[in-house]
């Protein structure tokens, strides 16, 4: 699933992963792979943990509410950057979607244990910079940055 893009930037690692909407079987694989990469790079366990949660929630939202998406991971010595772009229904009211407990998950999804309405709030909580834009009928874009504390890393 992982596709390595030959990258232009000097010191950053860039990897891209595609996500298929509705594919609950593979759901979570992307965030597991990302977590492994961050561990390999020796990033502080607490930061890995925050990043893993944010990545998982972002991935799941694509699986649940979009047709397909592209997850771009960029790691530089200073930061972890997730850029998650999807083609899907989009979010009509972002402020509402950001509220804890708000969810439009179907009963079937809730049956599977999803739809607690904590995904977006948890992404925000676990990231240092979080931007979300969305266009109804077209798709949603998440821009997530988590800073790496170099001191802890050594």
């Amino acid at each position: 699933m992982a596709k390595n893009r030959s990258d232009e930037r000097e010191n950053g690692l860039i990897q891209q992963f595609s996500i298929t909407g509705g594919d609950f079987y593979h759901a979570g694989h992307v965030s597991t792979q990302i977590k492994e990469i961050l561990k390999e790079l020796g990033i502080d366990p607490n930061i890995v943990r925050r990043a893993a949660i944010a990545a998982y929630e972002a991935e799941m939202n694509v699986v649940m509410y979009a047709q397909k998406g592209l997850f771009t991971l960029e790691v530089t010595p200073q930061k972890i950057h997730f850029f998650v772009e999807d083609e899907g229904q989009g979010i009509p009211d972002i402020e509402l979607a950001m509220q804890e407990g708000y969810s439009t998950a179907t009963p079937e999804m809730r049956e599977m244990g999803f739809g607690a309405g904590m995904g977006l709030p948890n992404i925000k909580k676990n990231s240092d910079i979080f931007k979300i834009t969305s266009e109804v009928g077209k798709g949603t874009v998440l821009d997530i940055i988590i800073f790496i504390n170099q001191g802890k890393n050594q």
């Binding site: 561990k39 390999e40 020796g42």
Partner: peptide, 26 residues
């Protein structure tokens, strides 16, 4: 904890090694 050693203790070098590893793997 007793985590596995990362690719490198220095994160910049770890990133470079990771890139090399991925391109070798390809």
């Amino acid at each position: 904890p007793r985590p596995l050693a990362p690719l490198d203790e220095d994160i910049s070098r770890a990133i470079q090694k990771k890139k090399l590893k991925e391109s070798l793997y390809e």
